[in-house]
Amino acid sequence: MSHAKSTFCPGCGQPMTLRALHQALKKQDLESKAVLGLDIGCSLLAWDFLPINTFQTHHGRVVATMNGFKRAKKDSISIAYAGDGGAYAIGLQSLLWAAMRDEPITVIVSNNVVYAMTGGQSAPTTMIGQKTSTNLDPVKQEPMRGPELIKQLNPHAYVARTSMTDMKELNHHMEQAIATQQAGHFSLVEVLSFCPTNWKVAGPDLKAYVENMKKIFPVGVCS
C-alpha cells in the first residue's frame, strides 16, 4: 500500500497512522485532492511514504503552512502531520489559533511522549514519573492534553484521541476528521503511538506501554 519503503525505526507507530490516513482518503477517493504537510521531527520521514502530494515544512510550522495552503486552494484536503513537540510546544500558538478560527484543515498529532528524532528528550506530553535525557530526575508536571485544550476553543471542531493499538478506532477517527474538514471545520486527531527506540521497550511490551498511556490520555471523541 505504501508508496516508498519506510525509513521509520522498526516498531515505530507512525507508518500505521499514515496508512490509516491513506485508507481514509482512499475510501473517499480523495488521494489526489489531499496535500500532506509534515512538521520536522520523525514526521519528516513521511515525505515520500504515501502516494499523495507531500512536503516538509519547519518544526512547529506545519499548521500555519497548511492553513495558508487551504486558504489558497479551498477544494484541497489539507492535512498537517506533526509530533507532540511540534504540535503542543513550539507550534502550539499556531495550533490554538487555527482551532480558534475554525480553519478547515486536519491536524494529526503523533503522541509518543518524547522528542524522538533528537533522541528522547522531554516532550509536552511526557508523563509524570518518566525519565528522559532532559529530565534525569523523574518528570513532576502534568502532561499537556492537547485535544482537551483545543476542544474548549471550538465547539464545531472534531477533536479526538485514539491509539494505534486499535486500528478500527484509528480508521474511524481519520474518516471523521476528513469529513469534518469537508464540512468546513477544523479537526484534530491525536494518536498514541509506539516509540520502542526511545522508550527502550522491547516489542512484546509496547502494547502494555500504550495501554498505560491511555490511563493518562483518555481515548475517544472530546466533547
Binding site: 496535500v35 500555519a64 495558508g68 487551504k70 489558497a72
Partner: peptide, 13 residues
C-alpha cells in the same frame, strides 16, 4: 511566523 508560513503554503498552492 504564522503569516510567513501561511505565505509559504499559499504560494505552494
Amino acid at each position: 511566523i504564522a503569516a510567513g508560513f501561511a505565505v509559504c503554503g499559499a504560494v505552494m498552492a
